[in-house]
Design a protein around this nucleic acid. Structure first.
Lengths: 192, 192
DNA sequence: CAAAACACTTGATCTAGATCAAGTTTTTAC
DNA sequence: GTAAAAACTTGATCTAGATCAAGTGTTTTG
């Protein structure tokens, strides 16, 4: 499964063969079965994780016991808890697999070392962070100014394909509404 | 006013005198009077901007004409529209001054060049981006799981001092509620 | 320093979406 | 293959917060 990550790298940066091999030498392959956890609340996250196959969700649980989905991550994207990683503090999130999944992990130490030693790799990582930040900004924007229906329509145009592989309950939670509301919205919009 | 930025830099990174001077040689000082715009919707943002004095707000206007405050930025913090800057596309945001303000600007070209030539500067910039991302994540978290009252209490503990210098209408918009609701919440919480 | 513009408060009413409840359909697991 | 567990739908009712409206207080500006 490392080939998927290799392909991603080749697509994003130009590396010498020895740099590629060097990166690969630190990669840890991890398989997760559906419902299995990658990170549990309270643990400190220590990796940089790339998904080569499958779909994961990051969520938190509030005092009343309700789950709030923070994000979905699928193949060819990254996951983890940056706050826990950066501040080395217990995570407030859980990350688990929605489907059987496969990941390539790097311990953060190794990852930082790679960033330091391979400037092109470092630039790629910064680019990813930029894009993540912009996506987060847009999500805030949507949550402030959209109605429930607009949020859903925005979601399916922005992430086509997600709706078919992720349970509606989780999508509803991600969008900040109840499953019942999402169900009704879908019925409405299907008509049109 | 450049001294404020100089102090910020000295606090964050170790630079040689010539590096410091080099950075300063690209700085553009900009003053804004209250209500003056730094960026208007439709324009392409081309700077990296540090605030040495004052307070700015980033907001968008939806089709119905309502304003949605995206963020507040005060002295010793950065502002701008990363999406417009990175993708070189017209901004969906307006940025204006809530108070008379002073900024240090760098054209993005110069800023990138500085990042490239001074690794320590680049690391500082990446650190800022990390923190911004984490803050955005937390804001999403809050908007999904908090009640209006919880959002307000979270805001005043996270940003003490903001409440006294920013009009309530804008804070309400930032928190995703109406000014009336915020007014009632403040009355409630004042009692306790 | 007056009056217009803006910012905040308070009350009455309304509504989008939540909650509660009881199905039906789909998936999972032995 | 079937029983139990999840996931989804639909209806009835409720409520947090929005909207509308009519004040009062406070800046801003000529």
């Amino acid at each position: 499964m490392y080939e998927i990550f290799q392909k991603y790298l080749d697509d994003k940066v130009t590396l010498t063969q020895s740099e590629s091999d060097y990166i690969q030498s630190f990669a840890i392959i991890k398989k997760l079965r559906k419902r299995q956890y990658l990170l549990q609340e309270g643990d400190i996250w220590k990796y940089d994780a790339f998904i080569t196959k499958g779909c994961l969700r990051t969520y938190s649980v509030d005092e009343k016991g309700s789950e709030h989905v923070n994000s979905f991550s699928i193949e060819n994207w990254w996951t983890g808890d940056r706050e826990s990683l950066l501040l080395q503090q217990p995570s407030r999130f859980n990350i688990d697999a929605i489907e059987d999944s496969e990941l390539v992990l790097f311990t953060h130490e190794n990852f930082e070392m790679l960033c330091h030693e391979i400037p092109a790799f470092n630039n790629m990582v910064n680019g990813i962070l930029q894009k993540s930040f912009i996506a987060a900004q847009n999500r805030i924007q949507a949550s402030l100014s959209f109605t429930a229906e607009e949020k859903y329509l925005n979601f399916i145009t922005k992430y086509p394909g997600f709706a078919s592989r992720i349970p509606q309950t989780m999508i509803a939670s991600y969008l900040g509404m109840t499953p019942e509301t999402l169900s009704r919205i879908r019925k409405q919009t299907a008509k049109k």
